[in-house]
Amino acid sequence: MKKLTDFEIEKKLPALLEWEYFDNALHTDFEFDNFKDCMSAMNRIAFECEALNHHPEWSNVYNKLDITLTTHDADGVTELDFKLAAAINKIVEVEEE
Rank of each mutant, 00 (worst) to 15 (best):
M1Y: 01
M1F: 00
K2Y: 06
K2L: 14
K2C: 05
L4N: 06
L4V: 08
T5K: 05
T5I: 10
D6M: 01
E8T: 07
I9K: 07
I9E: 09
I9H: 04
I9M: 09
E10P: 00
K11T: 12
L13F: 05
L13M: 10
A15W: 00
L16R: 00
L16H: 09
E18W: 02
E18S: 13
E20Y: 01
E20K: 12
Y21R: 05
F22P: 00
F22G: 06
N24C: 07
A25D: 09
H27K: 10
H27Q: 11
T28R: 00
T28A: 06
D29W: 09
E31G: 03
D33W: 03
D33M: 09
N34C: 08
N34A: 01
N34Y: 00
F35C: 15
K36A: 15
C38I: 04
C38R: 01
M39I: 13
M39F: 14
M39V: 11
S40T: 15
S40P: 00
I45L: 04
I45T: 03
A46P: 09
A46T: 09
F47M: 11
E48M: 02
E50P: 04
E50N: 11
E50I: 11
A51N: 07
L52Y: 04
L52I: 03
L52V: 02
H54Q: 10
H55K: 08
H55M: 06
P56N: 07
E57R: 02
E57D: 13
E57H: 03
N60A: 09
V61N: 11
N63Q: 10
K64D: 12
K64M: 07
D66Y: 14
T68C: 14
L69Q: 07
L69Y: 00
L69C: 08
L69K: 03
T70Y: 07
T71K: 01
T71S: 12
H72I: 10
D73L: 08
G76K: 02
G76H: 01
V77N: 04
V77Q: 06
T78I: 11
E79T: 13
L80F: 00
F82M: 11
F82T: 11
L84E: 01
A86M: 08
A86G: 12
A87C: 03
A87I: 02
I88K: 01
I88F: 07
N89A: 04
N89C: 06
K90Q: 15
K90V: 05
K90W: 02
I91L: 09
V94Q: 03
V94M: 10
E96Q: 12
E97W: 06
